[in-house]
């Protein structure tokens, strides 16, 4: 117990003795390990908020994209409407979409989640439609011949076979959602974006660079997670190459 408290306090002492750390009113370095140590609570809070908003938005996008893509597939006329609507959403800048949601969801995390969920939706609906199209027709016919009903066909044949294409879309959506979450700072729920905004206002370079780097790392991490999830979900794609 004693050793732990000593370790926790140790980095602060030499810095105080040697003069100003690499961040202060006079020293303003781009990268500063001392900043990361001193503000680790704040950084951790921002990072976890960032991740929570990103994941919630992706989940919302997935949950909405699934029925929409089924609808577009079932009724070909609605496909143009669904795709046109999602293109229109995609065209609206993020800094304009979030304010447009404020009258309905207020200055809350919900505004960011719904806004980013809509962006993810535009990517995911397309990916799901492409995914369903990529299912081999003979696989569907074989399942029908075995007496599969529409629901069982969808859940056990079409959906699993569409996974690789859908996951490719999810990778795109995940990476861009991580980047876009920073804009949530407009309504004070931007995760690492809050740190970036604060860093710009106070000309605090270490804070700005740390948040930006964490943001890119988070995007890469999420990308890897999606790739791993796809491997777990589609074991048959590996046996083919092995």
């Amino acid at each position: 117990m004693h050793a732990v408290t000593l370790l926790g306090a140790a980095p602060v002492l030499p810095a105080a003795a040697d003069g100003p750390a690499c961040y202060s009113a006079t020293v303003n370095e781009w990268w500063c390990a001392q900043y990361v140590v001193d503000r680790r609570d704040e950084i951790w809070e921002a990072t976890s908020q960032h991740l929570a908003i990103t994941l919630a938005a992706l989940l919302l996008g997935l949950v909405l994209a699934f029925p929409l893509s089924l609808l577009a597939r079932r009724f070909p006329r609605s496909e143009a409407l669904v795709l046109g609507g999602s293109t229109a959403v995609y065209t609206i800048p993020s800094l304009a979409l979030l304010p447009l949601l404020v009258p309905f969801t207020g200055l809350s995390a919900a505004t960011v989640v719904v806004g980013l969920g809509l962006y993810a939706l535009t990517v995911l609906v397309r990916a799901m439609l492409d995914g369903f199209r990529s299912v081999p027709a003979d696989a569907v016919e074989a399942a029908r011949g075995l007496g599969y009903g529409p629901t069982r066909l969808l859940m056990t044949v079409e959906l699993p076979l569409a996974v690789p294409v859908v996951m490719a879309g999810l990778r795109v959506a995940a990476v861009s959602t991580v980047a876009l979450t920073t804009i949530g700072t407009l309504v004070a729920h931007g995760g690492l974006g809050n740190l970036i905004a604060h860093g710009v206002q106070r000309d605090f370079r270490a804070e700005l660079v740390t948040a930006a780097v964490l943001c890119v790392l988070l995007a890469l991490l999420l990308d890897v997670v999606v790739v791993l999830a796809q491997r777990l979900l589609t074991p048959w794609t590996r046996t083919r190459t092995a």
Binding site: S176, T182, I196, V200, A212, A219
Partner: peptide, 14 residues
């Protein structure tokens, strides 16, 4: 796609 536009703008301005 992975680089937040906001972060790059912030770096350029600072």
């Amino acid at each position: 796609r992975a680089v937040p536009t906001f972060a790059l703008l912030a770096l350029l301005v600072t």
